[in-house]
Write a protein that binds this DNA or RNA. Structure first.
Length: 296
DNA sequence: CGACGCACCTGGGTGC
DNA sequence: TGCACCCAGGTGCGTC
């Protein structure tokens, strides 16, 4: 699913259609996604105006004039389609091929706005979900209460990584995927960040902290690599998998900048490195890295 | 508390 | 052509 850069791309694409608009009619095509929709979901949206559309990690939050916020998570395959009154269509951060993944039978939520635009949520695998919580209690809600720091915020430094990872024996890959520590990274950008920082994905996370808890060079390099790769990916409009080009510019282009992800067997692109990209499985998920330039 | 495996779903690709 | 099997961007829960 969309990781932080893809969710941010979706946010920017939805913002002009959603903010300032009022929900005139909300239709649920099924009672649940990954979780049941909250009580009276449609009724609590209808008649409400969106005052802001924000992002926290991989979550979108639409703030409403009712004092509640609509929380949206795209899971692995969630996507939005915006049909504008003039008949044009936009799929902000449309990271999937046309066809089955975009099949209308997976249109689960249809939100008609008073502007005449219609926003449709489509999610083939239904790992996504939506929720409604009081805006002033967002940070304490069950989705956000235990969530880690924003990787693009000022909090992410080598010192912070050293503090968060100290004493942990879990592999770096797993620590970076743990949303309770740093929130927003997923499989792609963890692989890319570790490669840029030249760190081995199987190295124990705790090795990024010195005996006194101070950040190692690797911790500082990792903080920098995370920020760089995420910033570049956001600027590229995220990544689009399954090599297709979307004519209306709805798709991102960062997949062309992958250095290791989904490049098993290909030559490492690091300067002066003659290695090849390896694929291993960590906690059931693919890890791509270069054994030559990424050292424990 | 930390670490790990599995569960939740559908669809695409591959190889026999 | 059919079918079995593996893979996929995430997260939550039960179990040691």
């Amino acid at each position: 699913m969309p990781e932080l850069p893809e969710v941010e791309t979706v946010r920017r694409g939805l913002e002009p259609a959603m903010v300032g608009a009022r929900f005139s009619r909300v239709t649920l095509r099924r009672p649940n996604l990954r979780f049941p929709f909250p009580e009276r979901f449609a009724e609590r949206l209808e008649g409400r105006t969106v005052t802001a559309l924000a992002r926290r990690a991989k979550y979108l939050t639409a703030h409403l004039d009712s004092g509640e916020s609509l929380i949206m998570h795209l899971g692995m395959s969630g996507r939005f389609d915006v049909a504008l009154p003039d008949g044009s269509n936009v799929s902000p951060g449309d990271f999937y091929l046309e066809g089955a993944l975009g099949n209308a039978r997976h249109d689960h939520v249809v939100m008609a706005l008073n502007s005449g635009a219609t926003i449709t949520y489509n999610d083939a695998r239904r790992f996504g979900f939506m929720d409604l919580v009081p805006t002033d209690a967002l940070a304490a809600c069950r989705h956000f209460a235990a969530m880690g720091i924003e990787p693009l915020g000022d909090e992410l430094t080598g010192a912070t990584i050293a503090r968060l990872f100290r004493h942990r024996i879990t592999p770096l890959k797993a620590a970076l995927l743990d949303q309770r520590l740093i929130a927003g990274l997923g499989n792609i950008y963890v692989c890319e960040a570790l490669h840029r920082a030249r760190l081995h994905p199987q190295a124990p996370a705790g090795t990024l902290a010195g005996p006194d808890g101070s950040p190692t060079r690797g911790a500082n390099a990792l903080a920098k690599a995370i920020k760089t790769v995420l910033t570049e990916a956001v600027a590229a409009g995220g990544s689009t998998l399954r090599d297709y080009a979307h004519p209306d510019g709805g798709a991102g282009a960062f997949q062309h900048s992958f250095r290791v992800y989904d490049r098993a067997g290909l030559v490492c692109t690091a300067k002066g490195c003659r290695g090849h990209v390896s694929r291993i499985v960590q906690s059931g998920r693919s890890t791509f890295f270069c054994e030559v330039c990424q050292r424990p």
